[in-house]
């Protein structure tokens, strides 16, 4: 039993999506509970991947491969999870890079790390218009809205989004976090965001605190 858990963890770390699918099926055949596979093997493995990436013991392509393996594992597990458990997630996160800004590597890293530890993430991409953020908050009712910017001339869209949410009485329904190269804690406070992450690891911890 422990062997298969260890093997699942190992193959997640190695980013072997095909092997993960096989191992998940094997684990089910051996009688492991689907939730146990998720909670004792897949998610802890992705936590470890996230930690290694934070310390740059592994690099972004390695983490992305691990994330693909994780997705393959959870998709294989999905039919075996009960209806109530099929989408067990810690919370819904909406992410995007603000209007006028086409830089998204930081936002993408945050997305993968959040998904890896069990959050459901909807990524709106880059150059997201102010009102698209607002419409999506209204439509999807996320726990967290995360906005990223690389330029001082684009991060000014963050308070615009917040104001539009306030004007529509939506601000109190969602926690807002911000990040990106020029963004600092005082900026986050000034514009009325609920939190700021210096890097992807901090962003994940921040989301965990806010979603509790």
């Amino acid at each position: 039993m422990n062997d298969i858990i260890l093997n699942l963890k190992k193959e997640i770390l190695r980013g072997e999506a095909t092997k993960i699918k096989e191992l998940v099926k094997k684990a089910i055949d051996q009688g492991l509970a689907p939730l146990e596979i998720l909670e004792k093997a897949l998610r802890p493995a992705m936590e470890e991947v996230g930690k290694k990436f934070e310390d740059l013991e592994i690099f972004l392509p390695d983490m992305m491969k691990a994330a693909e393996a994780m997705t393959a594992g959870t998709e294989t597990l999905r039919p075996y999870l009960g209806p109530g458990n099929a989408d067990i997630k810690k919370g819904l996160i909406l992410l995007g890079t603000v209007e006028g800004d086409v830089h998204e590597i930081g936002k993408n890293i945050v997305r993968v790390m959040l998904e890896g530890v069990g959050f459901k993430v909807i990524d709106l991409g880059y150059n997201v218009p102010v009102l698209t953020f607002v419409e999506k908050v209204k439509e999807l009712n996320p726990d967290i809205l995360g906005m990223s910017a690389l330029m001082t001339t684009t991060m000014v869209h963050m308070p615009r989004v917040i104001k539009e949410l306030q004007d529509r009485d939506l601000k109190k329904k969602v926690k807002i976090i911000v990040g990106g190269a020029p963004v600092l804690p005082d900026w986050a406070e000034k514009i009325g965001a609920d939190g700021y992450g210096e890097n992807a690891g901090e962003a994940v911890n921040l989301v965990r605190r806010l979603v509790k």
């Binding site: 006028g100 800004d101 330029m151 001339t153 684009t154 000014v156």
Partner: peptide, 18 residues
């Protein structure tokens, strides 16, 4: 160095302020 404000107004990329 790069300006963040011009005549006291925040610069927004792609806008007249920029």
């Amino acid at each position: 160095p790069i300006l963040e404000d011009s005549i006291g107004l925040k610069i927004r990329s792609g806008s007249p302020f920029e």
